[in-house]
Amino acid sequence: MKRALITGITGQDGSYLAELLLEKGYEVHGLVRRHSTLNRSRIDHLGGTENLHLHYGDLTDGVSLVNLVHAIEPHEVYNLGAQSHVKVSFELPEYTANTDAVGTLRLLEAIRAAGIDCRFYQASTSEMFGATPPPQDEGTVFYPRSPYGAAKLYSHWVTVNYREAYDLFAVSGILFNHESPRRGESFVTRKITLGVASIKLGITDHLTLGNLDAIRDWGYAKEYVEGMWRMLQHDEPQDYVLATGIGTTVREFAEYAFSHAGLNWEDHVRYNEAYERPTEVDALIGDASKAREVLGWKPSTDAKGLAELMVDADIEQLGRLVAHKQEG
């Protein structure tokens, strides 16, 4: 039985990846941070699974990582843990660097020191491209425009370095924006679909957003974790872009979401410059030709379909909460 270690297992990608690996017969180990209150809603449904094991630890604590790698001796490690909110990275730049950049180094060093035969996946990001115009692929010049993007760029290159210096099977997946009903509520796509659900159910009457002209390449997270897994099954360690190749503005995503609920977005969306970033990334559109040709991976959900499935999920979830309160 293959053993996999996932950092960030309680996040969007981590929860979908855990499901995928368990379905494939893996023994899955997840790294979780210690909090006074539990934050495991995305993996609660896996609680009774015999082959799922959770361990306290943190990417900012190298000792915990060394001990965990030695104890588990994983065949595959997926480093999905991060402070992943771009706007927040401007407010917490040092924490972002310590977690997202140095945290990756700590994990790679723990694997190297353990001397185990292990394959490593690093969650890189399209934010590393930043100001470089699209389309962006594996050979595109990086130009990050946030502390988050810069920290992830360090992680990307240190993964390449450990691959070349120590002959580790280490790869980076440069994933463009990928969303789902499990996306955090502070991210713009989920903020939009939750706003639509709130307006549809009469809880509120408006939604406040920032830059409506930003262009992103939005795909479905559940499909993207399949690409992560495929990268570690290939014979040679290589880096890959995962993307749909289709650019969509925030405005268009909002139109899709509101229209699906029978609403006109212009009647409900308000603009607030406070939601703008200090330095903006205008357009990210990926070219995933390499992943399609080498890994046989391709997405099947576009931004419109994504907005619709997220709206449906949020209306259902919020509707249950409203009904529960009314019953109480």
Rank of each mutant, 00 (worst) to 15 (best):
F120D: 10
R119G: 06
V77I: 11
G81A: 13
V69L: 00
A110H: 03
H55L: 00
V86A: 14
L38D: 02
P93Q: 08
S64K: 04
H53E: 01
T132A: 12
A123W: 09
Q122M: 08
A71S: 13
R40K: 14
Q83T: 00
R34A: 09
E76T: 04
V102R: 08
Y16L: 08
L31N: 09
T96F: 09
V88Y: 13
N98D: 14
V28W: 09
A123F: 13
E27C: 00
D58W: 13
S41N: 07
V63F: 12
H53W: 00
N79L: 15
N67H: 10
Y121Q: 10
Y16Q: 13
L68T: 07
H70I: 06
G81P: 15
Y16T: 09
L21D: 02
P74M: 03
S41C: 04
E91Q: 09
I72P: 02
S41V: 00
L108D: 10
T132K: 14
L65F: 05
A113E: 15
H75P: 00
L21E: 01
V63I: 04
D117I: 07
V86I: 12
L105A: 06
T125P: 07
L92C: 02
I116R: 05
L54D: 00
L21A: 04
S41Q: 06
G47Y: 00
N51G: 04
A131Y: 03
C118Y: 14
S126A: 05
H70V: 06
G48H: 08
T96D: 06
E76M: 08
L22P: 15
V69G: 02
N39V: 03
I72Y: 01
R42S: 01
